[in-house]
Design a protein around this nucleic acid. Sequence first.
DNA 1: TGAAATCAATTCATCTGATAAATCTGATGA
DNA 2: TCATCAGATTTATCAGATGAATTGATTTCA
Lengths: 255, 255
Amino acid sequence: MAGACNTVVKTLNWAGTMAGNQTSSVTDEITNILGREILGGLFPPGATLLGEEEICARFGASRSAAREAVKILSAKGLLLTRPRRGSRIRPLKDWNFLDPSVLGWLRASATPRDFIIELLEVRLGFECEAAALAASRNKADEIAAIREAFEAMRAASSGQGDPVLSDAAFHEAVLAATGNRFFLPLSALIHTALQYSVPTTNALFGHPVGDLDAHGKVLRAIEAGDAARARKAMHDMLSEVLARVRTAVELTGVT
Amino acid sequence: MAGACNTVVKTLNWAGTMAGNQTSSVTDEITNILGREILGGLFPPGATLLGEEEICARFGASRSAAREAVKILSAKGLLLTRPRRGSRIRPLKDWNFLDPSVLGWLRASATPRDFIIELLEVRLGFECEAAALAASRNKADEIAAIREAFEAMRAASSGQGDPVLSDAAFHEAVLAATGNRFFLPLSALIHTALQYSVPTTNALFGHPVGDLDAHGKVLRAIEAGDAARARKAMHDMLSEVLARVRTAVELTGVT
DNA sequence: TGAAATCAATTCATCTGATAAATCTGATGA
DNA sequence: TCATCAGATTTATCAGATGAATTGATTTCA
């Protein structure tokens, strides 16, 4: 029985990937749905799974679309396909958790408490060093971008613009100012962290935690070319947020 | 003219991806070659490029294989394909530099000096925090894995086993002991860094730099559950290597 | 009986060709 | 000059066929 593919399903198109008019392809639909399911733990992390036939049968798609979706998931470290054995879920340690798509899929199912805290722990690691590098490198135009983002944050704090986006832009500008390629991919993590934690912390504390003052200290230290001070300012800012989230989460019992 | 595909090329199979018997698929061949070329800067980072037809013509492959290769490269953030515009190289900031494949492609063309130093800078950021988290979390079995890797390093130092692999295993065990998923993908970076820098530093200094003593300090601090000491021990170890590489590179004039 | 070799069935990998959808180009007209 | 629309080009998707690799059962030999 080979003709089980291409049944009359076709009912999936458009579940909403982002805001706006972005029409999604069949391949992307399959990728996103399977990605969310894998990250959500629907499939046993170490065992066998996912036949080519099953996928195109389930989504009413052609083998091309199914195969391309599987290739994408494999490229992100989630699957390993072998000629006759089908696609197996790879061990968790091989998953590319820093990939923007993977982060998005994880966000859809992760426990909020763990998710926010884990993100902050990682940020605490590399963002302090990034601030120090940005300060010691001292590239004028890239530091100007940091200041620009800071001004956007100030404007956003008085209602002129999106506070999350300008906050993210600030931190991304710091990463870019390191002049180190390997810091760049971490901006996706910051984006996700802020989109997720800013509303939460606002709800918890009644006001924005992304302190303008704290960001200002980081900016001034970088502009002064003082690596140690920049590192400390960034550390103070993030560990303060982390501490507040930790205690608040314990108090309110958010899972 | 649509029939330009599938000419009589077929001359690519097997260029040697890894040591051993691992036979590579057509799709993987195309992916690896294009990946290396992109990371090597052969294609203008921001501009238009790569038609479906061109690819299958160049490699003598079918559109299926060409398309799947492009999907993989897109999944790693290198390309963006649009219905009629072909595949465009995305801006550098979207590239997933922490992906194992991307790291490998970059290694093939990167300037050794920048490559080693950039890797160490990033490690200095997150590995210190990872050591601290591992210490404060204090999970017995995961710390046992760190000690195990340390013993393997000791054995390797007297000729019993691979010094690079055991060193990498040590650092990966620390990442795993954080209990934080987002540290896991960074093990690829450590692997690449060690494979690349250990031979280099050995050649520069005449002896292994991956100090057994320094690793022992990290291990003992983690076993003692002393987060601050673990952070400092890791920082001392990495910054020592970074400093020595920096000066050695300046002296020898390695580009 | 047990172990190794063999063979058939199943599934992934690849190729080929065709149709649909999206976009660019240039011609047309106000 | 600019907006609009038809034609051409290219990607997206579908469909079917063949090749290659692995699994598992069967067979053969010690």
